[in-house]
């Protein structure tokens, strides 16, 4: 009898949940009506279902109008659409064509950087005599430093935006809206790897700042767009402790020469 009731228990629950039908439902109803133990089980579970069905959230209306949501989704899709191809090719694509040609020339025509893997199928190389190698070297160095400076100042914008945010999330107390900062951090981090890939020695003096900025960006990248105030506060303190804003300003100036 006890075993039989253990087996019955699931069907009593399913009856209470309203998911039995046909003969199965009729049989269970009949049993519940005639068995006090199952009756009690059924009544208790019905009370649970009743509580769920009385939950005010069942009829909650969204707090922001659909037009705002449509805009947000469109923006997200735009960002995904524009960030994807960039990520695949890295910042070199964004270099001015002339500078890229110089870079290609440096890579193919001189021994400044070690060659890796099989010999690439080279476009007709510019004669090595066209530009003195020290000029090319300087050009390339400057490009790397400019890229790093731009990266740092964009990172600073993101970190400032997070630290300074006071925008509450949809009237929810103690939560702040950090908007697109997490997305922008992820995009910046994707560029970070390529900075050192290019000419690490050209930005060697910036290494410590780059590392600290990377840590901070990783924190931001992990945030949801709506963050607890204390999490933002913790991040802000961390940035202050590392004197990150001042160091970024000094380093950006140094890199830009």
């Amino acid at each position: 009898m006890i075993l039989a009731h253990l087996l019955l228990r699931r069907r009593v629950a399913l009856l209470a949940a309203g998911v039995l039908d046909g003969r199965e439902r009729d049989e269970m109803r009949a049993h519940v009506d005639s068995c006090s133990r199952c009756r009690r089980e059924y009544d208790e579970l019905r009370a649970v279902v009743g509580a769920l069905e009385a939950d005010p959230l069942r009829s909650a209306e969204p707090e922001i109008p659909v037009s705002v949501l449509i805009d947000r989704v469109e923006q997200r899709l735009d960002r995904v659409a524009t960030s994807r191809p960039k990520r695949a090719h890295g910042w070199r694509v964004a270099l001015p064509a002339a500078a890229a040609a110089v870079l290609a020339f440096v890579l193919l025509g001189t021994e400044l950087l070690p060659r890796r893997g099989p010999e690439p199928v080279a476009p007709t190389p510019v004669p090595a005599a066209a530009l003195p190698s020290e000029v090319l070297d300087r050009l390339e160095r400057n490009l790397a430093r400019e890229q790093a400076a731009r990266y740092l100042s964009e990172a600073q914008d993101v970190l400032l935006a997070v630290s300074a945010t006071e925008a509450d999330c949809l009237r929810e107390e103690d939560r702040l809206d950090v908007g697109e900062a997490p997305d922008r951090s992820r995009q910046l981090l994707a560029r970070r790897a390529l900075l050192v890939e290019g000419r690490p020695e050209a930005v060697a003096s910036a290494q410590a700042v780059l590392d600290d900025v990377e840590l901070a960006l990783r924190e931001v990248a992990d945030l949801p767009s709506c963050v607890r105030r204390r999490d933002v506060e913790r991040l802000r303190q961390d940035i202050d402790r590392r004197q990150l804003h001042m160091r970024i300003r000094l380093m950006t100036r140094e890199l830009e020469g």
């Binding site: 069942r58 909650a60 209306e61 659909v66 949501l69 989704v73 949809l170």
Partner: peptide
């Protein structure tokens, strides 16, 4: 599609997550 299904999907996310901000982000 968003106009038609937004409130219903919002309620799924809200009843699961119990927080309006999380629910909105989730619907997005």
């Amino acid at each position: 599609l968003m106009e038609r299904h937004y409130p219903r999907l919002y309620r799924i996310a809200l009843s699961y997550l119990r927080n309006p901000d999380d629910a909105l982000d989730t619907v997005q």
